[in-house]
Simulated assay, not measured.
Amino acid sequence: MDVRTAFFALLVAVLGVIGFLLVDPFLQYVLAAGLIAFVLFPLHERLADRIGQRLSAGFLTAVTFVVAIVPLLILSLIIIDTTISFLTELQGSQLSAFIDSIRRFLLEDLGAQPEQVAEFESAVLAEFEGLLDASTDILLTQTLGLLDTTVEVGTGVLILAFLLYYFLVDGTELLDWTRQVTPLSGDVQDELYEEMSRVIWAVVGSHLLVAIAEGILGGLGLWVLGISNAAFWAVVMVILSVLPLIGIWLVWGPMVGYLIVVGDPVGAVILLVYGLSVLAVVDEYLRAILVDVGSGIHPAIVLIGVLGGIYLLGVMGLFLGPVLLALFKAAVTVFDRTHGIPSAG
């Protein structure tokens, strides 16, 4: 390597590092824009033939915000309002009713002594008040932190919209430029893009579909049984559904115990049967068919992708994390097929 080549390579490396530092604060929005553009591009191509590239891209960008971003903001407000209302109600009549239900359960059903029940009740109240105070402090801290990051989030959302529009308009040119500067043969690039496209559709589409289906079914079951804040718990179940090997039983399972404690054994049995016969079956088989089989990604890897994605990229890492790991697997798979060492025999 001569001096000129070395200098030019160093210049490219330095500019690349500077470029990454500039993009890093909004990396999650850039990746999310690329992912959304990938999902919408087939529809954009069909629509662009009728109304034009820019009008189609603008329309799909607007629809994405109306269908996805705005509901997410509304749900965030609902979660905050529900949490505050829940903590407020626990300080009032609901706390007394809950303690009375536990007292009757211990005295009548378990036959405990009144002195033991009184001691247990005092201990529970003391622990609960401490937990409630800590929860209130955490909620206020997080709420203030959310307000502090409003400007950053707003800027990121604007960047997402801007990039989504131009990814749709100039996506083909960007892909052609990538193919030109990538030092791989055309056949290898075709195979790489095909494998990446397959795993992206399998992971993103299937995870999102399963999560929404389980959240709707779970929330509907809680609503039919008259459990308050069913919409809030439906959102929680959507989030938990993205996590493989964890799932929405973390919501409906404790709800069964709650219904027993408050004196609704019939509702508890119905929810238990519904959870085991409907929710568990949907989680097990639909996820296995659409996610694990389709993507070829082990559930443990998906779990690491989700948790690592949240840690690295925030809320959007729920979907970006598994996709990035799936892309890594696709690249390794194609490399092994095209440049791997042949096996002996």
Rank of each mutant, 00 (worst) to 15 (best):
L55K: 01
I36S: 13
V204Y: 11
S76N: 03
G156Y: 05
A344H: 04
S93F: 09
F26N: 13
S85A: 15
A300E: 01
F162K: 06
L132V: 02
A326R: 05
G321V: 05
A268E: 02
F8V: 10
L77W: 01
L75K: 12
L324G: 07
I227G: 01
G19C: 01
L290R: 05
V157W: 03
Q94A: 14
P265N: 06
D176V: 12
V235N: 00
L144Q: 08
N229R: 15
A97S: 11
A326G: 15
V199H: 08
R50I: 01
L10Y: 09
I304E: 00
L327T: 01
L164R: 04
D81T: 06
S185D: 15
L73I: 12
S76F: 06
T149E: 12
L144W: 10
F335T: 09
T5E: 14
G156P: 02
V124H: 07
D190P: 02
F65C: 07
D170W: 04
T150Y: 14
Q28R: 15
Y285G: 08
L107V: 06
S295T: 09
D176L: 13
M237A: 01
V169Q: 08
M255T: 14
E45H: 11
E115T: 12
L164E: 03
P42D: 04
Q91I: 05
G219V: 11
I84T: 13
M1P: 10
T5P: 01
F335C: 07
V151F: 14
G314Y: 05
R46K: 14
S228A: 14
S135T: 15
D187I: 02
P265M: 05
S241L: 02
G257D: 09
P114V: 12
H298W: 09
V278M: 11
L245M: 13
L220P: 02
F335D: 14
Q113S: 14
V153G: 03
P322A: 02
V66A: 04
I36Y: 11
M255E: 07
V151M: 10
P71T: 00
R104E: 10
Y285V: 05
E173N: 07
F105W: 13
S295P: 11
L286T: 15
S101V: 07
V157T: 00
L140F: 13
Q189I: 13
A326N: 10
A288K: 01
L222Q: 06
Y258F: 15
G19L: 02
Q116P: 02
D264Q: 14
L192E: 12
I212M: 12
L163E: 04
V281M: 12
V291W: 04
E119P: 05
L184K: 09
V332S: 12
M316Y: 10
E45L: 13
G34V: 01
F98G: 08
V199R: 15
G321H: 03
L174R: 06
A57Q: 09
D292A: 04
I102G: 08
G294T: 07
E129P: 00
L174P: 09
L208M: 13
F65A: 05
G321S: 03
W233L: 15
R337T: 03
Q53V: 07
A9I: 11
A211D: 00
L271W: 03
L279D: 07
V66D: 00
F335G: 10
L271T: 06
R46C: 04
A231E: 12
S96R: 06
I18H: 06
G215Q: 09
A231M: 14
T88H: 08
D176M: 11
F7G: 03
